[in-house]
Design a protein around this nucleic acid. Structure first.
Lengths: 345, 345
DNA sequence: CTGAAAGCGCTTACAG
DNA sequence: CTGAAAGCGCTTACAG
């Protein structure tokens, strides 16, 4: 393995000069720099990250903690983040939890991240106090997407407001019986979004003078399958809802399926709206409230890079960025069937 | 940051002993080991990977090169691989290409991986000769999923045979006009699967004495949208195909949509079959040929770990594992409409 | 079973 | 602008 010594010897300078030349530091003559660069290229030399890391205390890597790599949403955030991180010379260390509590403990409370990363990016999870404390001991900048934690930078949408956008669309169309397909209680502990979206649902109901009925709030698990099962439940009510607001597009797709399976039409009999603008949404002609996913990954990376550039002993003032969401009306929402229309028997 | 010296001082032994004790090496008395372990825990000590890496020449990290992190298939493979890699004490460095040629060059030909990883895992891409040569200079074990390369370990399905399984199902049902939705020419250069599946399609047609017509082989891009567009094209033929074989489930979902959009029924008018058993497939009641995705990730990790354990100067005999695929009949395939049935006008 | 010491390959004041 | 040298925190023969 060719080392900095080989380059230094080849050029006839010290390793200090090679180091400076290669990293673009000042105090190297142009002529020397050119010769070093040339020799390094010829020798196919790459500095050892381990050695550099040991000398500088930096790893040039950021850890990304993700609940489920298999999901489009997280993959997209990662993709957005990696683009900028890579450009800035950082590697991306993946910590996929896969819904496994043991994995979660290992990452957050164990020592997996210690001395391994310069910064960490947490996707969607709301960490417990113990987990926050554990990450704090890393003494590295942390950014979160879809969760806000004291002392952490964050980027996300306003989940309450986003849910209200969806609900106002439905209410504006004339719907009054609106079911909500959201997350389970356990999910609400781990993820901020489900609870906030439920709050937005209820706020909008109250705002419109509509009754809140816990029978109309069902658990969809944030999966297609869960949305399907949840909506089946909703459709059993009598009178049944004329609209379903699913807290994610994947659940909304399941909802559409459930409606059709029941012999009803979307949107003529039952309207369905989701949140995300998932890559499938356009394809399914799903009305939804879009959030910028890729961009949130980029923004989170930007926040991390800012923090990395800052004086570590200087005042930390992590930014919290809220990105806008917008209603995308496609073909799964419409006014409710008129009261005169025949009801399913 | 507490270092090995702190632990050594606290116990009153040398750093060499601490190092041996912590790593479970022999030649440490039980009593000493216990004291070291205790002190390390109390001091919350974790060895610096950079320092250890510099001393040993190993990074305890494996690089994973993935075409698109946003896709379920790749996410699932990664998840499977990470589980075993993590358990063996390896970190996972993510290199997402995102379909970007510049990113690809940077990863394969640039120096991104040099001195960074102990092994690399390549997903689905068929590397060029130059890329293979470039990775070879890393002098680290490489494993591929969904591609076979001389000197690399690999795991994958038999794409030709898998395509034939799908085709035989269709042919067995009585179909004779079968369209193929596959990848584009450029994709075939990068990925082995599209070409092999096309080969399987043609083999099966020939085997059944059916004519091969390049008009019935259309480009679906391996996306839902692409499958939709491709199938629209297929349905314009007169007589139109009675079945569509899509080389992936995502394209098959698009195909189903296209058939319905044309006012035809699946499977009564047109049958559709895919490959993968994507998480959406069951939901869409899609007939498909299932491949074990998560398991391929695990197997690839196993191969890598085996290679990592081997004597690096010993004889390398990388294994190539082929995992079986199996037909999963659901509700998108049926016998073709009888000749007497009215044709679309 | 244990320790002293060299060495891994960089970076960084410091001196010139 | 350049170099000698110390130091980052481990691991590993080697000696005892």
């Amino acid at each position: 393995m060719t080392s900095i010594k080989d380059v230094a010897a080849s050029v006839g300078v010290s390793t200090a000069t090679v180091s400076r030349a290669l990293r673009g530091l000042p105090r190297v003559s142009d002529e020397t720099r050119v010769r070093v660069l040339k020799a390094a290229a010829e020798l196919d030399y790459v500095a050892s990250p381990s050695a550099a890391g040991l000398a500088t205390g930096q790893t040039r890597a950021v850890g990304v903690i993700v609940p489920f790599v298999t999901r489009w949403f997280y993959g997209s955030v990662i993709q957005g983040a990696e683009e900028l991180l890579r450009e800035a010379g950082y590697d991306l260390l993946l910590y996929n939890l896969g819904g496994d509590q043991a994995a979660r403990d290992r990452v957050f409370r164990g020592h997996l991240l210690r001395k391994r990363v310069d910064a960490v990016l947490v996707l969607s999870l709301t960490p417990t106090d113990a987990e926050v404390a554990s990450l704090a001991r890393l003494d590295r900048p942390v950014a979160a997407v879809g969760a806000t934690v004291d002392g952490w930078a964050s980027v996300g949408i306003d989940d309450v407001a986003t849910a209200r956008i969806a609900m106002r669309h439905l209410i504006g169309l004339g719907h009054r019986r609106i079911g909500y397909v959201g997350g389970s209680l356990e999910e609400q502990l781990d993820f901020a979004a489900p609870l906030d979206r439920l709050t937005g649902y209820r706020d909008a109901m109250v705002e419109a003078g509509l009754p809140i009925d816990s029978c109309w709030e069902v658990v969809g698990d944030f999966t297609v399958r869960g949305g399907l099962a949840a909506t089946r439940l909703l459709l059993e009510a009598d009178p049944r809802p004329t609209a379903v607001f699913a807290a994610s597009d994947e659940m909304a797709v399941g909802a559409v399926h459930a409606v059709r399976e029941a012999g009803l039409r979307v949107p003529e009999d039952v309207s369905v709206i989701g949140i995300d603008d998932h890559e499938m949404a356009e394809f399914f002609e799903l009305t939804t409230v879009a959030q910028p996913v890729h961009e949130q990954g980029q923004l989170a990376a930007t926040l991390l890079l800012e923090a990395l550039d800052e004086d570590p002993d200087g005042p930390a003032h992590p930014r919290a960025i809220t990105v806008p969401t917008r209603l995308v009306v496609r073909r799964t929402t419409a006014p409710p069937p008129s009261a005169a229309a025949p009801r399913r028997t």
